[in-house]
Design a protein around this nucleic acid. Structure first.
Lengths: 165, 165
DNA sequence: GTTCAACAGTTGTTGCGACAACCATAGACC
DNA sequence: GGTCTATGGTTGTCGCAACAACTGTTGAAC
């Protein structure tokens, strides 16, 4: 089949999105690393646990909530456990499974990191947009995620209202 | 100062954007790696060179076009040079500077990789959106980049029309 | 109750990105 | 023309992510 190239408006959107993809994660990471010694992904893991019942989640569920593979999550959780922010224990109902629970120190850490992180998100993203653009961005990212994550593994995460992100 | 938390619409947009940030680079990388043995960043480097006059750019200019730091670019270009896709030579007018030029093999490589990459971008992003949403996305990412890249180092890249991305 | 495929997680290896330290040249100033 | 700072680039080290290989457990088939 012959390639259907991007036309000018499509290309304009894509080039800018690619740049955001390149720059934004670094900006988020460097603020969190500098101020709290966390990567953005580690922050996200702690945040997801902080909202879960009993601050506990199975590794598989946590991986789905964070869009991560299980091997990646396993390494990250081990490091967070070494730092005392998370504890792991075998699931009582399924001997294959492992539960991860946020410790008090982990709770304190996420409470400490949240304000600076939210300020960074505002500074780089939300406050750059009009309220109307925020709504448009929701619809656009929703459409992209439908293609990217067809099983909708994260859909329960998207559709909650009370997150502490 | 007391934190201004994200309200519900803001949070909805941010959670989805964060998921896109997490998933999209991996999707792009894995297609290019599988089909052409390139990372998305390597592809982007080759693409920027392919559009430059004489297929040549100074390292600093190439770093700006690709939103990369110079150390990162230096490593990547050395690897691409080892693979024969790029050649480096000292700049004749400034003995401090290095020029990077796309070789014929590099030119063939980018021509070979482009159709599959464009198809992936269409599949995951562009074709998921209405034409109106594509326009909205351009404005939104432009606003974010203004905050993220205040010097507008990449602005010449954004505002070209003829890219082979 | 054995076998077998699927599931849940961990571990080891490899490769890339971030950061800091470093070397060389250019241009300004006196 | 010699010093001094800024610029342009490279190299080395460390930490994290991707991938593959592996262990142990479950549930179903028979």
């Amino acid at each position: 089949m012959t390639t259907k190239w991007l036309d000018q408006p499509e290309l304009a959107a894509w080039i800018r999105l690619a740049s955001v993809l390149e720059l934004l994660p670094g900006a988020l990471d460097s603020q969190l690393r500098r101020d709290n010694g966390l990567t953005h992904f580690e922050y996200f893991v702690l945040a997801m646990l902080s909202e879960a019942p009993d601050r506990t989640l199975r590794m598989t569920a946590l991986a789905q909530h964070t869009s991560a593979t299980l091997p990646r999550l396993s390494h990250v959780v081990r490091r967070l456990e070494d730092r005392g922010l998370i504890e792991r224990f075998p699931c009582p109902t399924d001997a294959r499974a492992t539960n991860a629970r946020l410790t008090d120190a982990g709770w304190d850490k996420i409470r400490e990191a949240a304000p600076g992180h939210v300020a960074t998100v505002r500074e780089h993203v939300i406050d750059a947009l009009t309220p109307e653009q925020v709504t448009q961005l929701t619809a656009i990212t929703d459409a992209i995620l439908t293609r990217l994550d067809p099983e909708g593994r994260m859909s329960d995460v998207y559709h909650r209202h009370d997150s502490g992100i």
